[in-house]
Design a protein around this nucleic acid. Sequence first.
RNA 1: GGGGGCGUAGUUGAGUUGGUUACAAUGCCGGCCUGUCACGCCGGAGGUCGCGGGUUCAAGUCCCGUCGCUCCCGCCA
Length: 597
Amino acid sequence: MLDHLGDLKRTHNCGELRPDDAGKEVLLMGWVHRRRDQGYLIFIDVRDRWGMTQVVFNPDVNEQAHAKAKSLRTEFVVAVSGTVHNRHEKTINEKHATGAIEVHVNQLHILNQANTPPFVIEDRVEGVGEELRLKYRYLDLRRPVLQRNFILRHKIAMKVREILDQNHFLELETPILTKSTPEGARDYLVPSRVHKGKFYALPQSPQIFKQLFMVSGLERYYQITRCFRDEDLRADRQPEFTQIDMEMSFVQMEDVFEVVEHMMAEVMTLIDVDATRPFPRIAYTEAMDRYGSDKPDRRFGLELQDFSTLVASCDFKVFADCITNNGRVKGICVPGGSDLSRKDIDQLESWLKKDYGIKGLAWMKWTDEGVAGGISKFLGDLGPDLFRAANGSQGDLLFFVADSREKANQALGALRLQVGKNRNLIDESRFEFLWVIDFPLLEFDHEQGRYIALHHPFTSPLDEDLPKLSTDPGQVNAKAYDLVLNGFEVGGGSIRIHRRDVQDAMFKALGIGDEEANLKFGFLLDALSFGAPPHGGIALGLDRLVMIMAGEKSLRDVIAFPKTTSATCLMTDSPSEVSVNQHVELGIHVMRGAKSD
RNA sequence: GGGGGCGUAGUUGAGUUGGUUACAAUGCCGGCCUGUCACGCCGGAGGUCGCGGGUUCAAGUCCCGUCGCUCCCGCCA
């Protein structure tokens, strides 16, 4: 029989009672975490968001409550009132903050029953399958580890708002139902009932709207807002995610860096990390050359080495020919890597060949008997020279990739990360911020036969590169920047184009004609012609930031109701089919089994 | 779109070369227990081996297909 809540009121939460509270009459509410029925004594751990408190049912204290407690099961919702007692020395539980006290219950209210949960509500349930956890997400979210993540997420959002408010930013909202734009990620579309055959798009980011706020003279904007991108998922990519979106007027890159670094440093104090400022900066090309990545993880070394000059005229044809064909011979030196087995190396090689299209992964070891194995026999005296060039020492292993600069960088960048993980070279206690700057404005898309914006089409070119926009677009650098933390891109932004003539030139370079530009972005172009101030900003990925700060490996652990890798929700079973009536109302005809190219 | 891993009691896993009634832990149910805290002890229930097809005298095990979860490549201005 269930009890009503009535006018019962909590006096304390389950995490706060201490020996000082001994003697107090208290009332706790929460879930039955665990039941230990000793026959005479019944111990129950009552759990709420704040912690866990042991309550004791003793027939000598209250026989009725003791009898009622017999029926309690895991996850029942209870209210217990009783007296706080210090535990005997021998029975103190050091594992819990409340472990020195217990509540002797004289009244038990069972507020709700519970089915046996499909998995134990415990932190150490690493084994529970993702599928179950997602289906019963509300139970998964009862686990203290996940609750900690969301408490941290809340604190981060609060801190962000606090700092931005201090810096005179206004929190402003932008539409969720908006206009589909070309360029960029695939849009999620929403059909219009009123205008059949027409669609809204969910925002990939509020990019254009925040620029319009600047035109409006609101000067400083921010928003913690949802963004949507219909692309395939990864551990660090969900179809809907949250950005800390910011924009400021009358600023240069340095002003944006200043605000963001200040904000991030404050945010990091929430996990007792002291972020050293200013954050280091690295040019995009240097990042690619040294780390093989535009988001380098600087918590460990293993930097890429360029051996091209050394091997240019060597006898090993693979290397020499590669250099002759304008390629690069690069590599990484793995400290102590001579213990890698042939099998380990073969696995790495076949992975890199498949995923990064390189022709092969060469290697050699510096063993007790000198440089040996792999390609060392083709290199002769050059072997030791290469180890020296890479600052290697005995016991190390050198990996080589001979390919185009881009492919070599990309493959070695992936290898560097893999080796760093496999050999535990990454110090998880470190938090390394990094600005990546000097991005190219455009990159040539061979499939489309035109330039596309590397960042987005509203990114300002460097002032000095402006003339090259019409003559040599590929050589123009952008006023764009990414914020990288521990190998994740946690933010990206730019100084925007605020002049109509420059925006026109940009669209021209992108091969977007006047007509198309007007159709897609006419309102922005108009706005730029009414006195738009110089402005710029950034968008920070809140989910990724929380994930990294919480020490989690997946975005799913910091998003309350995340999607699976196939973009479904196992709890609500969305997406789902809708009635034909709804199709008709929206003017939609569904083509089953239709395939796009 | 492509590649890898996983799928067996409620849950997490084991299951040999294809061979009798599919195993363990935990959870669940019942009983016992006055200091437990991942309580303990005794007993019990619990299975469409993801799904479909094939090979075979015989399939959890081999083959083909398919679905789901997951990691990666492509994609993600």
